[in-house]
Computed example of a mutant assay.
Amino acid sequence: IQTWVRTYVERYYPNANLIRADTELQAWYSESINVGHADHRDAEWWPELSTVDDLVSVLTTIVWLASAQHAALNFGQYPYGGYVPNRPPLMRRLIPDESDPEFASFLEDPQKYFFSSMPSLLQTTKFMAVVDTLSTHSPDEEYIGERQQPSIWTGDAEIVDAFYGFSAEIGRIEKEIEKRNRDPSRRNRCGAGVLPYELLAPSSEPGVTCRGVPNSVSI
């Protein structure tokens, strides 16, 4: 991602003066800090936006958050949390203290107490439906490294070539993930009863697949 972003940025901002002089770019960054994160607007850790490296870093972070990081956190939700006892969205009873009258029943049958604390059937069904929707890829999803018309999305031939290079690198990464998933020495992702790690595999079929990195967050 960083290599692709750097190629794009350096094409249109070959030096720092252009970045500092771009009033729209500076206004966008200022709004991101002062409006989008008003509660942290005075924090000292905000990076500057005055050099090519600054812009590359900011944009790389945004692209990463909206694509790969979001995919890794989001599209595994249903396989993990669709069975609600595995990850309840809420509990209707607290774990009792030793002084609590319910402590004895908790000790007598912890599993029964746990299930009695679970969400209601209606709450459970709603949660399952929401998590299923969040974890589902649409049939027309565009994944990282893909475009419907990759050769004509911009009139800049140099950027088109750079995008093809980025797309090829994404394909290489997917093959590397598949290779590691077949490696029997990686016992955390290969073997009997072990699920392969595919959350960061770039491509996916439609539906709930527990893999796929879309180009951006859709909600």
Rank of each mutant, 00 (worst) to 15 (best):
E178F: 05
H70D: 06
S99H: 07
N188S: 11
K179E: 14
G212E: 07
G193V: 08
S216K: 14
S57I: 02
V35E: 13
L55K: 00
S120H: 08
E44R: 09
V131Q: 03
P202R: 04
V9K: 04
H137G: 04
R186H: 09
T23A: 07
S116T: 10
Y83F: 07
G76W: 05
N15T: 06
Y78I: 07
V5E: 04
E141T: 14
D22N: 15
I19A: 00
V217L: 14
I152M: 03
R11P: 00
L134Q: 12
E24R: 15
M91Q: 08
R186N: 10
G212I: 00
A129N: 06
Y78P: 00
A43Y: 13
L195F: 07
V35D: 08
T23N: 09
G145N: 00
I177N: 09
R93F: 01
T209N: 14
P196Y: 02
R180C: 02
G81S: 15
T125G: 08
I95K: 09
L55H: 00
A104L: 04
D54W: 08
T125C: 03
G36L: 12
I177Q: 06
I19S: 00
S57Q: 04
F166A: 13
S218A: 06
W45P: 01
V52W: 03
A129Q: 10
S32L: 14
K112L: 11
V5N: 06
V194C: 04
S203C: 01
N17K: 13
S50K: 15
L199W: 10
L94N: 12
F166T: 02
P206R: 10
Q2A: 05
V56Y: 10
L200M: 09
M91F: 09
A162L: 03
Q77N: 13
D22R: 11
W64N: 07
A104F: 07
H137M: 03
G76L: 04
E24Y: 13
D132S: 08
P88D: 03
G145W: 00
R187I: 10
N15I: 09
N181R: 10
P110C: 07
R211Q: 13
G76P: 01
Q111T: 09
W4K: 00
R147E: 11
Y113V: 11
D100N: 15
V9E: 07
F103K: 05
E158Y: 06
D161W: 10
M128D: 02
I152E: 04
K112F: 05
H37I: 03
D97T: 13
S30D: 14
A66S: 10
Y12A: 09
S117E: 00
A168Y: 11
Y12T: 13
K175M: 10
Q149C: 01
Y29E: 12
R20H: 02
A201K: 14
P196W: 01
K175Y: 06
S57F: 12
